[in-house]
């Protein structure tokens, strides 16, 4: 459909105005710059609210400068502000000024996972008794369905410890030299989002379950990782509310409950 010429004028003006709202060095008359401040400040506040530990790690001024770079390069593509920030962790991977804080991007990954868990669909979480009630000779046939809020962030850094001490502790606990990689489990069995530490290799276990593999196959894939411990992994998964369904063979748990 052809637009009258004035409508083309409006589109051209909106295009120029939109670009100047996002660009760092744009020069605008004061009254128009109100909108530029609104756009940049509100988006930067939205990121600060979504990534509070990242902000604490680098400080509010550095965070704001970093957020404005991100906003300019990857402005929101959706009017649902809760969807903004999916690319922030990846952006931090390549953000040279923050390179010294090597674990920053993984902390952002964990905070984004918590955010998605907050908005995930509701489901009832299963207790581990459902697993222990399965006859030992049928354990090989068990299939587990993940809770919609559950996800894993595996890091070469002690991401759970870093997040926990910066999110909850009164004083930040220094991490010893021995602090190594950690695998974070994010869940929301009810109203509150939980972060738990899983044994190394558990990300493979959870990924295999998410692909629809049986428990035996998922355990086999994780077991090749040094430090993986099946009993601990399953205990943490159930206790944190990461499992929403269990079936043995073709008999689905939904039919049992």
């Amino acid at each position: 459909m052809r637009e009258p010429p004035e409508a083309n004028d409006l589109r051209a003006w909106q295009s120029v105005f939109a670009a100047s709202l996002l660009r760092a060095g744009a020069i605008m008359p004061d009254r128009q710059a109100v909108h530029r401040n609104n756009t940049r400040a509100s988006l930067s506040s939205a990121l600060a609210a979504r990534f509070p530990v990242v902000r604490r790690l680098v400080g509010p001024d550095f965070f704001r400068a970093m957020a404005l770079c991100f906003i300019e390069r990857q402005p929101p593509r959706s009017p649902v502000l809760a969807e903004y920030g999916a690319g922030f962790a990846h952006f931090l991977d390549g953000f040279a000024p923050a390179r010294e804080v090597a674990y920053l991007a993984d902390v952002a990954r964990l905070e984004w996972a918590r955010h998605l868990a907050f908005h995930a669909e509701e489901a009832a979480a299963l207790s581990i008794e459902r697993l222990t009630a399965v006859a030992p000779d049928r354990l090989e046939q068990v299939r587990l369905g993940l809770h919609p809020a559950a996800s894993v962030v595996a890091s070469a850094w002690p991401v759970v410890s870093i997040w926990t001490t910066n999110a909850h502790d009164q004083e930040v606990r220094p991490l010893g030299d021995g602090a190594g990689s950690e695998c974070a489990l994010v869940t929301r069995p009810e109203l509150h989002v939980l972060v738990s530490a899983l044994p190394a290799g558990s990300d493979r276990l959870v990924a295999a379950l998410a692909e629809g593999n049986g428990l035996a196959e998922a355990v086999a894939r994780a077991a090749t990782v040094e430090g993986f411990d099946t009993a601990t992994a399953l205990s943490v998964l159930f206790r944190s509310g990461a499992v929403a369904s269990l079936s043995v063979g073709s008999f689905h748990s939904m039919e049992l409950s």
Binding site: V80, A82, L116, F118, H119, A120, E121, P148, L191
Partner: peptide, 11 residues
Amino acid sequence: MGAGNGAGGPP
């Protein structure tokens, strides 16, 4: 309107 694929949670 949720976030990602979910439109649940405390809100």
